[in-house]
Structure formats: structure tokens, C-alpha cells
Write a protein that binds this DNA or RNA. Sequence first.
DNA 1: GTCTATATAGAGATAGAC
DNA 2: GTCTATCTCTATATAGAC
Lengths: 193, 193
Amino acid sequence: MGPKAQQARERIVEAADALFYTQGFENTSFADIADAVQISRGNFYYHFKTKDDILDAVIDKRLAKTGDMLQTWETQGNTPVENIRCFIHMIYDNQSNIQRYGCPVGTLCTELAKLNHASKQEANKLFALFRHWLTGQFTLLGKDEAQAEALAMHLLARSQGIATLSNAFQDKAFIQQEVKQLDDWLAEQIQHT
Amino acid sequence: MGPKAQQARERIVEAADALFYTQGFENTSFADIADAVQISRGNFYYHFKTKDDILDAVIDKRLAKTGDMLQTWETQGNTPVENIRCFIHMIYDNQSNIQRYGCPVGTLCTELAKLNHASKQEANKLFALFRHWLTGQFTLLGKDEAQAEALAMHLLARSQGIATLSNAFQDKAFIQQEVKQLDDWLAEQIQHT
DNA sequence: GTCTATATAGAGATAGAC
DNA sequence: GTCTATCTCTATATAGAC
């Protein structure tokens, strides 16, 4: 595969990534993606044999990006608490997109679960990335394995609930109020150590 | 409309309700519903002109059923705390379905939001029903309006997060652990009154 | 590597017989 | 009120020219 194809492929994945997020996977057609990338539908199939192949490429890309982000957080924050705070503040920073389209991870996993799609396990790895990273951070904070696991899942669940309701009710104050509560909750977890 | 049509219509809504929940709205075709009800696709259109009409009927039915359930809870529980506990325990009682298909309210609202569907506001009324009922219960508990609102939204968000993660990770212990935490959280809210 | 043209399947929706 | 037959549109996917 030459550099030209590589570039076109990348643009397709980029466009599909955005469209799957804003419109949903099933609701996005090849034509939608082709339009966004400005290539013909015929050429499309030179790069991807099926729609599911594009989905897998999108998930792979998101996994890589998420992994990088988690690494960046660890170099930014100096303590586990600061690292976890990066996660919490991601909700705050992305509040506008979350309000409009929900959480990119949660909405994809929910959709693929409902479709009983072959790639749903692959998408769930996005959740698992955050889960295991958070578990690691809570372990560094001095929690035992079971506690760290439970705290990570709890925080993940809280963030998902915030995204779902914020998307339904379009309430900006709600996100901010809940993020603040998560900050307080995190502070409490240090006390209990 | 005669009683026979009334009955067929009811069966269609019932089947559509279940299919929209287990497979998603967009992923469910007229043929799927017709198969489930055992009527021909042609006859189908005697009862409903469009797929969106069926969706509206399903939402209406869910709204009515939810309203009834909330009333039942109020007659079962003797105190606001007991009423709210009915809500929390609904998560526990439905854990098997939630694990498989997510929350019926959350997944529908999320899907319609992504489709930017005309009926998304109608579906959001399902969330609003729970929200306002919970707000009322927290008010009865002695909270002021702003507090009651925030507590209702918080509880609703927690339940949504539990549903989303339980659906993704298929973890039975997780639901039970989080429901217990919600019970404890509710107990704390009484202390603070 | 990109295009146009086309095949094929499934969706929602309608017409008209019974 | 229910059926069969059919229309139309859009989706995924392919063939083959350039």
C-alpha cells in the first residue's frame, strides 16, 4: 500500500470516526463518509471491503488515541490524585460535545451492544482501558486491589451517568455540579486511605 | 376503530416495545414486528401509517406504565425514603435485563438523540417523569427545591451509569455493589436533613 | 488509485383483492 | 380487517474502464 492510499485511508477513518460519534454507526452510510472525504463510493471499496472493517479501524484508532491520552495524563500529573483528576476534568472540558452527542465511548458501546455487533467486545476495550488505568491509579493511591477496582468502576459509572443525562436534558449546570461532586468524592477517597 | 383492531394494535405496540428495547429502534424493521405479531406487512399499515407512529405509540405506552409504577411505589412505601428505595431497587430487580439490554429509558433516549429523531423530546419525558417524581420525594424529605432537584438528577445519573457499565462489562457483582452504595447514599441524605 | 455504472438486498410504504 | 403483490428508495457491495 502506497503513501497515497495510506493518506486516503486515514482520511476515511477520520471522517468515519467523527460521523459514527455524531450520528451513530448504523445511521452513518458509506455515502455519508464518501461525501465527507470527497471520494467516490467506488473508490471507497479499494480501501475498505466492508462497513465493519471501517468500524474496526475506527475502534483501533480510538484505542490508540486513548492509550496515548492516558500516558500523557501520567506525565502531566505528578501524583495519582492529579492523574485521576485529569480523567474527571475531561468531562468538564468536553461538556459541549457530551451534551450534544453523549460520551464517545459509552454511546458506541451501547449501540453495538444493542446491535449485538461482532465488534462490541472490541469497543468495550475502550471502557476497559479507562477502567484498568483508573484501577492502577487507585492502587498507587494505596487502595487494595478490590477497593481500587470498585473505585475505578464507580468513577467510570458516574461519568457515564453524567454524560447520558446531560445529553438528554441539555443542562450545562448539571455537568459542572456533578464534576464538582466528583472532585469532592476523590478528595474523600484520599482521607480514607 | 373496532375491538379487533384495538386488540391487534395493542399487540403491535407490545411487540414493538420489546423489540425496540432488545434490538434498538432503528435496527428493528416492520418485518421484525410483523413476524413477532404474526400479521402480514400489508395489514400492518392499516394500524400504523409510519414507523415513527409506532415509536410514538410505544413511548406513550411506556409513559403511561411508568406513571402507574410511580403511583404504585407511593402507595407501597409509607415514607419518601421508602419510595425512593423502590426506585433504587428497581435496578436490582431488573439487573438481568439491564445487563443484556441496558436501561430501557437511557438506551432509547441515547439512540433517538444520536438519530436526532423528531420524537427524542417525547422519549426524554420518560426521564423527566422519574426526575420530577424523585424531586418530589426529596422535597417531602425536607430538602429545598434546588437541593431536591440536584439529588434527583444525581440519583438518576448514578442509575444510568450503573446500567451502561453493567451492559458493557456484564458484571453482576458490580450492579449489586453499586445498588448497596446507593442505599447507603440515601441513608446519608436523611442524616443531612 | 480513482472513477462510473451497476448488481443486489432490504427497508418503508402503497394498491387493491377478498 | 387482513391479505398478496408491488412500488420506490436507499443501503451495501461489485465490475470494469481509465
